[in-house]
Structure formats: C-alpha cells, structure tokens
C-alpha cells in the first residue's frame, strides 16, 4: 500500500510517501513560498525520489483544513484531482490534528493553534493519552474564549504550532502553570503523521472524491453579513 500525503493548509508545505507502514520520503518546508507554484513540483519530486510513478500511488491523504483558505484549497484541489483521475481513495485529516499528532508522546491535552487574525484562532484540543480523542472541537475561536474553555477544564495543556508565539503572553496570563509551549520541533505539520492518521480510519469510497471539500470552519464574510441582514429583516 503506497500513500501520498499533502499538507499546504498553512504557510509550511509538507509532502510524504509512505509504503507499507514505512516513510519512504518526506519533506517539510517552512519558507515564504507560494504553494500554488511549489506544491506540484514538490509532489513530482518526492514521487520521483521514491522511485515511483503517479500510477503506483494507492491512496492520498490531505490536510483538509482549517487554515489559510487559499492554502487549504490548493492542497485539496491537487489531492482531489489526483485521487479522482487515478481512481484511488482520498482521505482528509484535520490540519489541527496533524499538528497535535507531533506531540503524540505527551500524555495529556494538546492544543493546536493557527492564527486567524484579529485575535482569533483556528484551534482544536486533543487528548494524546487517548489516541488524540477530540476534547474541544476544531473551530474558529477568539483566543480569549478558547482559553476560557481550557481554564474550565483545568488540566495541563501543551500548545503546538508556530502561531502559538503570537499568543503566548495571553496564554500564560490566562492559564499560568497549566500551559506549556511545545518545542519548535513540534510546530510544523508532517505529511508522515498525516498519512499515519489517515490510516487509522476506514478508507472512503473512490466515488466520494467529487464531494470532498475543505473544512473552512468559517462562513465567507459576505455570506455571514447577508444571513445577519436576513435575520434582522425578519424581526
């Protein structure tokens, strides 16, 4: 069984090939580059390095979001088109869970954080003592409200993701000793972890690929405003 993994949900780019439970090749880049220009060359390169051709791939795992709208869409579009045209299954994994998986050896709560600007984050909390069971659902939260929820839970939390730095002061203020910053080696998504997580669940049917869409965790602003107006008019 040969997997291709793709993560372009945020500024890092990660691709990997896993064959029969072994990582054959993996690459993670964290430079200010354009995913649209770089992801296909990176995929071509890693498939070549692994001594494979596109038709050898048996399944694809993609980071489904949340994250940068455009970044998530680029990965999903590439993954979806490859899976559909090669007639192989496509598995989506939460971009926040992929980050949390980096802290798999930490026996406790892991909070993945992606900056969504204006004091908001895409965040999710997982329990790495229980196979990354979800404790707080992936979502678009104000950082303050996410920290409020964590305070209520009252357990030690490990924070992962490069955007943790943006909020670290606020986190420390709210959670004090409960909060630990993961080392920077845990901050970038690994496409190997992505594939590993995709392997834990049943493979979707090949026919489902057409319906595969990103997880945005957020309405388009124009849509949200429009719904609000409709509501006000009804009053």
């Amino acid at each position: 069984m040969i997997w291709l993994g793709i993560d372009t949900a945020n500024s890092p780019l990660a691709v990997a090939i896993v064959k029969d439970g072994k990582i054959v090749a993996a690459e993670t880049r964290n430079m200010k580059v354009n995913h649209s220009a770089s992801v296909m060359p990176a995929i071509e390169d890693i498939i070549k390095k692994a001594g494979l051709s596109p038709s050898d791939i048996d399944a694809i795992a993609v980071s489904q979001g949340p994250g940068s709208y455009t970044g998530v869409r680029i990965g999903v579009t590439v993954a979806k088109t490859l899976a559909w045209t090669l007639q192989i299954p496509l598995a989506g994994v939460s971009s926040l869970k992929v980050l949390a998986a980096n802290a798999g050896i930490y026996q406790g709560l892991v909070c993945s954080v992606i900056d969504a600007r204006r004091e908001n984050v895409y965040g999710g909390v997982y329990n790495s003592a229980h196979q990354l069971e979800s404790v707080i659902d992936d979502g678009h939260y104000s950082m303050a409200s996410l920290l409020e929820k964590l305070k209520e839970i009252g357990q030690p939390v490990l924070f992962v993701g490069q955007d943790v730095d943006v909020f670290w002061q606020q986190i420390k203020q709210q959670l004090g000793e409960l909060a630990t910053r993961a080392p920077y080696t845990f901050d970038l998504p690994s496409a190997g972890q992505l594939i590993y997580l995709a392997e834990q669940v049943e493979l979707p049917a090949v026919e489902d690929t057409h319906n595969f869409v990103p997880t945005y965790c957020r309405l388009v602003e124009a849509e949200a405003n429009w719904l609000k107006e409709q509501k006000e008019q009804k009053r």
């Binding site: 649209s36 992801v39 296909m40 995929i43 071509e44 596109p54 038709s55 709208y69 455009t70 869409r73 680029i74 579009t77 590439v78 979806k80 088109t81 490859l82 045209t85 090669l86």
Partner: peptide, 18 residues
Amino acid sequence: VGALLIGINAAKAFSFAH
C-alpha cells in the same frame, strides 16, 4: 487569483497524473 488557482492546480495534477 483565488478562482484561477483551482483550475490551474487541477490542470497541473491532471497533466502530471497522465
């Protein structure tokens, strides 16, 4: 640009696959 990227990345993936 966001709209263009979808067609372009699909076209690239398709051309690479075949």
